[in-house]
Write a protein that binds this DNA or RNA. Structure first.
Lengths: 176, 176
DNA sequence: ACCTGAACACCGTTCAAGT
DNA sequence: ACCTGAACACCGTTCAAGT
C-alpha cells in the first residue's frame, strides 16, 4: 500500500501498473495476485488510503458549515497526491457511495432537517461538485507545473463559491 | 468516425481500441495513424460527434430555463451511446471547456446578468453536476441491465432537482 | 495519399511449480 | 502462505516499404 501510493505520487497514475509496482517491491508481477484479486481492487484500496490519510477532526457545529468542512477535507485529501482526484473519483464510480465522506455529507444534510429525498439529491450534488472541481483543478495544476498551460485554475475560493450555490438552494428548502 | 461510435455503442469503451477499430474497418492498425495522430485525438473526435448528434434547437427564452435546456441536451446526448458519458467527460478534462455546451451555458448565465466571475463559477458548477450525475446514472443503468445491481438510479427528475439547487443560488445573486 | 508488415515496448492475468 | 517462471492474449505506436 505504501509503495503503491509512493509510485502513484512520484510517477502518476499511468505508471502505477501491476508490473511496475511488482518491480518496485522486488517481486514478480504474479506475486501481487496473492494479496489482491485484481488491479481495480488495488486502486480502490489506494483511494481509501488517500482518504484515510486526509482525515481531520470535525470542528463545525452547524450542519451547513459541517458539510463545507467535509467537502474541503475531501478536496485536500485528493490534492495531496499526484492524480489523487482521478483515483478517488474512479474508485467512487465503481463502489457507488461506499467511499467514506459520502456518508458524513449525508449525515450533515440529515441533521439540517432536510426531507429524505433532498438529502440524497443534495449529497450527490455536493459530491459531484467536489469531484468535478478537484479533478479539473488538479489536472490544470499538473499541466501548469509541466509548463503545458499558462493560466492557473480556481483554487479554494472558487471551490467554496460553487459549494455555496447549492448550499443556498438547500438552506432555502429546510423545513419546506 | 461512424465505425468508432458503432464499436463503442456495441462493445463499450474498453473494447474501442485502435487495433479493434482497425480490424472492424478491415485495415491494419498502423493505417489509422494516417487519419489521426493518436488514440486520445480519436476519442476527442468521438466525443464531439456524440455531442453533435445530440444537438437540438433551443426553445426556452428565459436564461435559467435555457440553462436547464442545455443541461438536458448534454445529458441526453451522453446517454444515447454506451459509455457516452465517460467518453465526453474524459475529452472535456483534456481540452478544458473546448467542447460545445460549455459555451452555451456560459452564454445563458451571462444573459442572466450575472457578474463575470459568477458566470464562470456557475457554468463550471452546472457542468460538473451534469457530468457527475450522468456518469453515475449511466454506470448504474448499464450495471442494472447486466443484472449486477438491483436498484435504479435517479433519472431526469433527480437530475433536474440537482440543477435547481444551483440555479436557486444563481437566481438569488442576479443583480447582487 | 494511403496502406501493409513487422517490430518495439509495454499491459493484466493465470497457473503449474517451487519453498 | 507466499513467491517464481513462463506463458496467454492483448495494448498503443513507429517506421521502412510498397502502390
Amino acid at each position: 500500500m505504501d509503495r503503491a501510493i509512493a509510485v502513484l505520487d512520484e510517477y502518476g497514475l499511468e505508471s502505477l501498473t501491476m508490473r511496475r509496482l511488482a518491480t518496485d517491491l522486488g517481486v514478480q508481477p504474479s506475486a501481487l495476485y496473492h494479496h489482491v484479486p485484481n488491479k481495480q481492487t488495488l486502486l480502490t484500496a489506494v483511494a481509501e488510503e488517500i482518504l484515510a490519510r486526509g482525515r481531520r477532526p470535525r470542528r463545525a457545529g452547524e450542519w451547513d458549515r459541517r458539510a463545507v468542512e467535509v467537502c474541503h477535507e475531501l478536496r485536500d485529501a485528493m490534492l495531496a497526491y499526484r492524480d489523487g482526484a482521478e483515483v478517488v473519483v474512479t474508485a467512487y464510480s465503481f463502489g457507488l457511495g461506499t467511499v467514506g465522506p459520502a456518508g458524513e455529507l449525508r449525515e450533515a444534510l440529515r441533521d439540517g432537517g432536510l426531507p429524505d429525498d433532498l438529502v440524497g439529491v443534495g449529497t450527490r450534488a455536493l459530491l459531484h461538485l467536489v469531484f468535478g472541481h478537484t479533478v479539473e483543478e488538479q489536472t490544470a495544476l499538473q499541466a501548469a507545473s509541466a509548463g503545458a498551460i499558462d493560466w492557473t485554475p480556481g483554487g479554494p475560493a472558487d471551490f467554496e463559491r460553487g459549494l455555496e450555490l447549492v448550499l443556498d438552494g438547500l438552506r432555502s428548502r429546510v423545513g419546506g
